[in-house]
């Protein structure tokens, strides 16, 4: 079960990298992240985590509601 949690975490990590890279990086003339891209990645990561937490909270409420019916 701990292994499963680690895997879920790594999957989330890989998802964030993929999504935020896609959203933030569109200039491939330089190797380094521009300051704009850098800020974008930070915000994007933060937003994804908050989004994910909010979805989790609503989903838990929904399941609790269903269970009590």
């Amino acid at each position: 079960i701990e292994k499963k949690q680690m895997q879920d975490f790594l999957k989330m990590y890989a998802n964030i990298v993929e999504k935020c890279f896609t959203t933030c990086c569109n200039d491939f003339t330089s190797k380094a992240l521009s300051s704009k891209e850098d800020a974008c990645v930070a915000n994007c990561t933060e937003k994804w985590l908050k989004h994910s937490e909010r979805v989790g909270a609503r989903f838990a409420e929904f399941n609790a509601e269903q269970a009590s019916q």
């Binding site: 990590y13 964030i16 990298v17 990086c25 491939f28 992240l33 850098d38 990561t45």
Partner: peptide, 16 residues
């Protein structure tokens, strides 16, 4: 460049 940036993003997200 894409590989370099992808690795950078990976680092940043990991640190975050």
């Amino acid at each position: 460049k894409c590989v370099a940036k992808y690795n950078e993003v990976q680092k940043k997200v990991g640190e975050k």
